[in-house]
């Protein structure tokens, strides 16, 4: 989903349109989920954080400015929520969670967790699912564009190898 479409939906949500909110969820939740997963590394926490992100979108929609970068706005909420959740998790007594216990089988997500660094995962998610250009990812992740490009290339190679092994 491009930035313009996201902005349009957020503007509708800002007017109280709940069906636009549902549509926003349908169209953006995969990208948000995969992005949060790169931080939390398990489906259970990611699902909780995902719902909280969308709740926060409803609660903070009045602070969204029409015509600005809607994707970046959601990205920031998702990132903040992931970091908050990590903080909370570190305080909760050890609850062992395997990455996909009781959840849908996620071959690619699991492979990403196994072979990619956190930053490589985020680059892949932001480029493939969110449609960001390398230049934009560099701004979001505060690193040089060249680094994003080389890490992206390296990450794809790792993923190809990992998925071949699985086959």
């Amino acid at each position: 989903m491009d930035g313009f479409e996201t902005d349009q939906l957020l503007c509708k949500v800002a007017k109280g349109d709940n069906s636009a909110f549902e549509e926003l969820y349908l169209k953006t939740s995969k990208g948000v989920y995969a992005f949060i997963y790169s931080y939390l590394k398990n489906a259970h926490d990611t699902e909780d954080a995902l719902q909280t992100v969308y709740l926060k979108i409803k609660m903070n929609i009045s602070s969204y400015r029409a015509g600005t970068n809607g994707r970046a706005w959601i990205f920031q909420i998702a990132k903040n929520q992931a970091l908050t959740q990590i903080k909370q998790n570190s305080r909760v007594e050890d609850v062992e969670k395997s990455p996909s216990d009781g959840f849908a089988k996620t071959e690619i997500t699991d492979a990403m967790q196994r072979v990619l660094t956190e930053e490589e995962q985020r680059i892949i998610v932001l480029h493939v699912l969110w449609g960001y250009k390398h230049r934009e990812i560099a701004t979001l992740l505060e690193c040089p564009t060249g680094t994003v490009t080389s890490k992206y290339k390296r990450a794809l190679e790792k993923m190809r190898d990992a998925l071949k092994e699985n086959v």
């Binding site: 949500v13 800002a14 007017k15 109280g16 349109d17 709940n18 909110f21 549902e22 969820y25 939740s29 995969k30 989920y33 995969a34 489906a43 699902e47 995902l50 719902q51 969308y54 709740l55 409803k58 609660m59 903070n60 929609i61 009045s62 959840f103 849908a104 089988k105 996620t106 071959e107 690619i108 997500t109 493939v128 699912l129």
Partner: peptide
Amino acid sequence: KWLKELDMAVPKLSQDVLDAPILVG
């Protein structure tokens, strides 16, 4: 393939979030 996989993994929007009011001011 990844999107298909995420279709299965990403949960539906929870009823509580769906029912939560949108704070439009």
